[in-house]
Amino acid sequence: MTSYLFYPGCSMETSAKAYYESLIAVKKTLGLDLVEIDDWNCCGATEYLGINLIPAYALISRNLALATQQANGSRTVVAPCSACYLNLAKADHYMLERPELGEKVNLALQAGNLFYKPGSLEIRHLLDILINDVGLEEIKSKVKKPLRGIKVAPYLGCMVPRPDYKKRWSDHEHPDELDRLLSALGAEAIDFPLKTHCCGGHMPQISPSTAFELIRRLLHGADLYEADLLVTVCPMCQMNLDAFQAETNRYFHTNYKIPIIFFTQLMGLAFGEDPKELGFGRELVSTEFALSRIGLEIPEPDGSKVQPKRAKKTGLPMPTMPADEEAHK
């Protein structure tokens, strides 16, 4: 077992639960020991960096400082989410490149009795660990049910292969790591030209037409190549292409129904795990047809029958806001 420090990131517990569940299901087979960083906090996604520089880097660096405290033997932090991975790597990289940044961040961390020495951790994405540490031969040797008959579009999105501070990927725009992994599982990986194009990021919330166009291009591309499904390494890519596919279809009067799942889910299938344990059924665009190509049925996720109560006005249940909560103290 190789031990790694693990930074799950917020979405693994919520929107990307299927990623988390499938990772848990395959990590044993792969001999990965993932030690979660205690009490980690959000990395700030792409939001905090655009507001306040030092607080944004201090927010990210609290995680790095906690990880160093916990590091026993392992100095490698693994992040499954692309945005988390890039934020952690970016903070480490820029604090080395610009020592005054590191000094200021450490001054702030002192308020919490924490310290981080830039450059003291290795920050890596989960796919990188699987390809370069576990290795494709090892992965291939664990395959019990080769995924023959399914055509997959490998989709990495932006923030894993770029900017790639440590030059870990085969190419910034057309890396082949995910393709090779899919082939090792027995699936047919199409040579997807849009494999590192943008999913729209946070644009569905800011400029919907910009986001829908970026989503449309990817769906159109996958459709042209007759992919049964898209496979991603990033919670945000999954969310945009899955949850906003219906709105994109309405916007362009198209009718795409291309499911998008996490690469760990396909690995689990190939290792012979039960689809239910792999988070299948959590996607909004059904994988039913795609999985039927390899003779599998998708389960209903637990609790899917429980319909949440409707709030009066919007049709969406209303959460508690920080402001309300403060007011009720």
């Binding site: 929107s15 639960k17 319909q307 949440p308 919007t314 049709g315 969406l316």
Partner: peptide, 20 residues
């Protein structure tokens, strides 16, 4: 956009992809 997004929101909730 809320009315047309409600099915998606409910889908995410019922598939336990959003915490209340």
């Amino acid at each position: 956009r809320l009315p047309s997004m409600a099915p998606m929101g409910l889908g995410l909730l019922s598939k336990q992809r959003m915490e209340i």
